[in-house]
Amino acid sequence: MAPSVFVTGATGYIGGDALYAVSSKHPDWSFAALVRDDAKAQQVKAKYPNLRIVKGTLDDYDVIKEEASKADIVIHTADASDHEGAAKAIADGMASGHTKERPGYWLHTGGTGILTFADSDAERYGEYDPKVYDDMEGQHELTNLPDHAFHRNVDKIVIEAGTKHADVVKSVIICPPCIYGPGRGPVWKRSRQVPTLVQKTLELKKAPIIGAGKSVWNNVHVHDLGDLFTLYADAAATHNHDAELWGPKGYVLAENGEHAWGDVAKAAAEAAAKAGYIPAPETTSMSKDEAWEVADFQALSWGMNSRGKAIRAKKLLGWQPKAPSIWEEIPALVKREWESLQQK
């Protein structure tokens, strides 16, 4: 029997692309998606007529628990790294609705904002940090980060579910960094960090740089991220229970390179100036407080370090990112953001 898949965030950027990637490879699988309003439900159904709509929000514990208990695979992307209630509902549903003979597979979306705690603790923005994590030799460090780190509260729920109920719940935290590229989902196709930086560049006529602009963050194209979700879904469907993939060791970084935020800002300004959208390729340095006024946490992230090496998925699942680099994507992104601003 074809696997059943429950998706949260199908109308969002990550979830929409993950649904596209997995369903494109496996059109015979059964898909259900949590959607909170009728208008978005219609958009999802228009693209996926055989998909079952589950009306509800992330606060609907009973709804989510029931769907998680029934599904063979749960792909959780909707505010996944921060909404404790939804994570608890999935954990409880998977543990109660599955058995050792029929385990449930939980593909949970984390975020490498969790790696920024050192900068936050030190109130340090725009400075370079040489610390680089990795998800193979340094995997234990990733699953035992400080409790006050961003997203850590939800990470612990997922890790506990995959450890305490290891025979029944096969969990993995897929942890993407800065995501870029146009999504292929039915509703939301835009990422956040770089598009917001580009948008502010166009509005201010100068690209914002936090502090010295030396902070470094990993990046990944959303299509490559979709491929990684598909590889994990394939592992679930074939009952690949390699202990290196799930549970206590199921923490996977999803990066394909890194960038200094100051360099991204300069590239955005150069592309905007070349296209004639701003007078000159200029930048402007901002303090933490000034950045917050521009774009709250999105802007603060441009001043933080989040660095890691994605080894596990490449070694164990053969993940091979192949989409255009962030540098190749910036001119097209600048054009899209300019066109979007003209429509407002």
Rank of each mutant, 00 (worst) to 15 (best):
E337P: 02
P130L: 11
T77G: 04
V132E: 12
I14R: 10
Q193S: 09
H221D: 12
A161K: 09
Y128H: 14
A80T: 06
H26P: 05
A71L: 10
I174W: 01
E203F: 01
H108T: 01
I114S: 12
E290K: 04
P281D: 08
L253F: 15
P331C: 10
D60L: 09
E66G: 14
W261C: 10
W246S: 03
P130T: 06
K205R: 15
L107N: 08
K40H: 06
T99S: 15
K266H: 02
G111P: 03
K214S: 09
V5F: 00
V74Q: 05
A118L: 15
N218K: 07
L341M: 11
S301D: 02
Q320P: 02
G308L: 06
G250E: 04
K131Q: 13
W338K: 15
A95F: 03
A275P: 00
I73Q: 09
A260M: 13
V63G: 06
V132L: 08
P182N: 08
Q342C: 04
M136D: 15
K45Q: 15
L225K: 03
G257N: 05
D263R: 10
I326E: 06
T143H: 04
I90V: 12
V216P: 03
Q43F: 06
D129Q: 07
A236C: 10
F150P: 01
I75E: 03
